[in-house]
């Protein structure tokens, strides 16, 4: 059984990315990653217009116990940041695949090794 939505693709850094519409895709972290962090209390997102690079840090997620880098699963330009999650970081825990999305990106390049839902589920179970 997988709680990772089939329509998304996944990075090994535990980000998800939606199918692009008109070249723009939505990025978030998986529920597996959110569970591992614990209660997220602070989110720093890239700003609209920022260039992000696949596999490189573009923000931060802080939980009670730790601070983690946010990695972009693809390269491109940020078109929107989720201000709701900035003001209420607990959305990352309660709705990681929905209201807890982090930013939208106009994709210029994506790595070949993004995982399908089944591959990601196997990856985190392994």
């Amino acid at each position: 059984m997988s709680i990772n939505p089939q329509e998304l693709r996944y990075s090994k850094e535990h980000e998800w990315i939606s199918a692009a519409e008109a070249g723009v895709a939505t990025v978030g972290i998986t529920s597996h990653a959110a569970d591992a962090l614990g209660d997220v209390v602070f989110v720093q997102l890239p700003e609209v217009g920022d260039s992000v690079t696949a596999g490189e840090s573009c923000g931060e997620l802080e939980s009670t116990k730790s601070v983690s880098d946010l990695y972009s699963p693809v390269s491109g330009e940020v078109t929107e940041a989720n201000e709701d999650v900035v003001s209420d970081p607990s959305l990352v825990n309660t709705a990681p695949f929905e209201g807890g999305w982090l930013f939208k990106v106009r994709i210029t390049d994506e790595p070949a090794d993004l995982l399908s839902a089944d591959e990601y589920t196997a990856f985190i179970s392994g």
């Binding site: 614990g38 209660d39 009670t64 116990k65 607990s90 825990n93």
Partner: peptide, 8 residues
């Protein structure tokens, strides 16, 4: 045990 659910 670090936490059972939400530590908050």
């Amino acid at each position: 045990p670090l936490r059972y659910g939400s530590e908050r």
